[in-house]
Amino acid sequence: SRSVIRSIIKSSKLNIDHKDYLLDLLNDVKGSKDLKEFHKMLTAILA
């Protein structure tokens, strides 16, 4: 869910600018399909 993804971003080791950017992107995501794609992208970034 959106709140879980937000929590993953906030607890990541990324610097604050990257976190803010990803949180802004997350706010722009519409629909469950796009949310799944965003989660895939985030997982790849944090891997």
Score class of each variant (00 low, 15 high):
residue 1 S to G: 09
residue 1 S to I: 15
residue 1 S to Y: 14
residue 1 S to P: 12
residue 2 R to N: 06
residue 2 R to S: 06
residue 2 R to H: 10
residue 2 R to I: 14
residue 2 R to M: 11
residue 3 S to V: 10
residue 3 S to Y: 04
residue 3 S to W: 04
residue 4 V to E: 14
residue 4 V to W: 03
residue 4 V to A: 14
residue 5 I to R: 01
residue 6 R to V: 15
residue 6 R to S: 10
residue 6 R to D: 05
residue 6 R to A: 13
residue 7 S to T: 10
residue 7 S to M: 07
residue 7 S to R: 08
residue 7 S to V: 08
residue 8 I to Q: 06
residue 8 I to C: 06
residue 8 I to D: 03
residue 8 I to A: 06
residue 8 I to V: 07
residue 8 I to Y: 03
residue 9 I to Y: 00
residue 9 I to S: 00
residue 9 I to A: 01
residue 9 I to V: 04
residue 9 I to H: 00
residue 9 I to W: 00
residue 9 I to P: 00
residue 10 K to M: 13
residue 10 K to Q: 11
residue 10 K to R: 15
residue 10 K to S: 09
residue 10 K to D: 08
residue 10 K to P: 00
residue 10 K to I: 15
residue 11 S to W: 04
residue 11 S to K: 13
residue 11 S to E: 15
residue 11 S to H: 14
residue 12 S to H: 02
residue 12 S to W: 03
residue 13 K to M: 13
residue 13 K to T: 15
residue 13 K to S: 15
residue 13 K to Q: 11
residue 13 K to R: 14
residue 13 K to L: 07
residue 14 L to H: 02
residue 14 L to I: 06
residue 14 L to W: 01
residue 14 L to F: 02
residue 14 L to G: 03
residue 14 L to A: 03
residue 15 N to H: 14
residue 15 N to I: 08
residue 15 N to D: 12
residue 15 N to F: 08
residue 16 I to E: 15
residue 16 I to C: 09
residue 16 I to M: 12
residue 16 I to T: 15
residue 17 D to T: 10
residue 17 D to Y: 09
residue 17 D to K: 15
residue 18 H to R: 05
residue 18 H to G: 06
residue 19 K to V: 07
residue 19 K to F: 04
residue 20 D to Y: 11
residue 20 D to M: 14
residue 20 D to W: 13
residue 20 D to E: 15
residue 20 D to L: 14
residue 20 D to N: 13
residue 20 D to G: 15
residue 21 Y to G: 03
residue 21 Y to I: 07
residue 21 Y to F: 11
residue 21 Y to P: 00
residue 21 Y to D: 04
residue 21 Y to C: 07
residue 21 Y to Q: 06
residue 22 L to V: 02
residue 22 L to I: 03
residue 22 L to Q: 00
residue 22 L to D: 00
residue 22 L to R: 00
residue 22 L to S: 00
residue 23 L to G: 01
residue 23 L to N: 03
residue 23 L to I: 08
residue 23 L to T: 04
residue 23 L to K: 01
residue 24 D to V: 11
residue 24 D to N: 12
residue 24 D to I: 12
residue 24 D to T: 13
residue 24 D to L: 13
residue 24 D to F: 09
residue 25 L to W: 07
residue 25 L to R: 05
residue 25 L to I: 07
residue 26 L to F: 03
residue 26 L to T: 01
residue 26 L to C: 02
residue 26 L to Y: 01
residue 27 N to R: 11
residue 27 N to M: 11
residue 27 N to S: 11
residue 27 N to V: 07
residue 27 N to K: 15
residue 27 N to L: 07
residue 28 D to Y: 12
residue 28 D to F: 11
residue 28 D to Q: 15
residue 29 V to H: 04
residue 29 V to K: 04
residue 30 K to W: 07
residue 30 K to C: 07
residue 30 K to A: 07
residue 30 K to F: 07
residue 30 K to G: 06
residue 30 K to L: 07
residue 31 G to A: 06
residue 31 G to Q: 06
residue 31 G to L: 09
residue 31 G to C: 07
residue 31 G to R: 07
residue 31 G to D: 11
residue 32 S to W: 11
residue 32 S to M: 12
residue 32 S to T: 13
residue 32 S to I: 15
residue 33 K to L: 10
residue 33 K to I: 09
residue 33 K to G: 07
residue 33 K to P: 06
residue 33 K to R: 13
residue 33 K to F: 09
residue 33 K to V: 12
residue 34 D to L: 15
residue 34 D to G: 15
residue 34 D to T: 06
residue 34 D to C: 10
residue 34 D to R: 09
residue 35 L to S: 01
residue 35 L to I: 07
residue 35 L to P: 01
residue 35 L to N: 01
residue 35 L to Y: 05
residue 35 L to G: 01
residue 35 L to V: 04
residue 36 K to M: 10
residue 36 K to C: 06
residue 36 K to W: 07
residue 36 K to V: 12
residue 36 K to R: 13
residue 36 K to A: 14
residue 36 K to H: 15
residue 36 K to D: 13
residue 37 E to T: 08
residue 37 E to I: 11
residue 37 E to H: 08
residue 37 E to G: 07
residue 37 E to V: 07
residue 37 E to C: 05
residue 38 F to D: 00
residue 38 F to L: 04
residue 38 F to M: 02
residue 39 H to S: 08
residue 39 H to E: 13
residue 39 H to P: 01
residue 39 H to W: 14
residue 39 H to Y: 14
residue 40 K to D: 12
residue 40 K to L: 08
residue 40 K to V: 07
residue 41 M to A: 06
residue 41 M to P: 00
residue 41 M to Y: 11
residue 41 M to H: 05
residue 41 M to K: 07
residue 41 M to L: 07
residue 42 L to R: 00
residue 42 L to E: 00
residue 42 L to A: 02
residue 42 L to N: 00
residue 42 L to V: 11
residue 42 L to I: 13
residue 43 T to M: 14
residue 43 T to R: 10
residue 43 T to G: 07
residue 43 T to N: 12
residue 44 A to W: 05
residue 44 A to S: 10
residue 44 A to V: 11
residue 45 I to Y: 07
residue 45 I to E: 04
residue 46 L to Q: 02
residue 46 L to N: 01
residue 46 L to D: 01
residue 46 L to P: 00
residue 47 A to F: 05
residue 47 A to Y: 05
residue 47 A to K: 11
residue 47 A to H: 09
residue 47 A to S: 10
residue 47 A to W: 03
residue 47 A to N: 10
residue 47 A to Q: 11
residue 47 A to D: 09
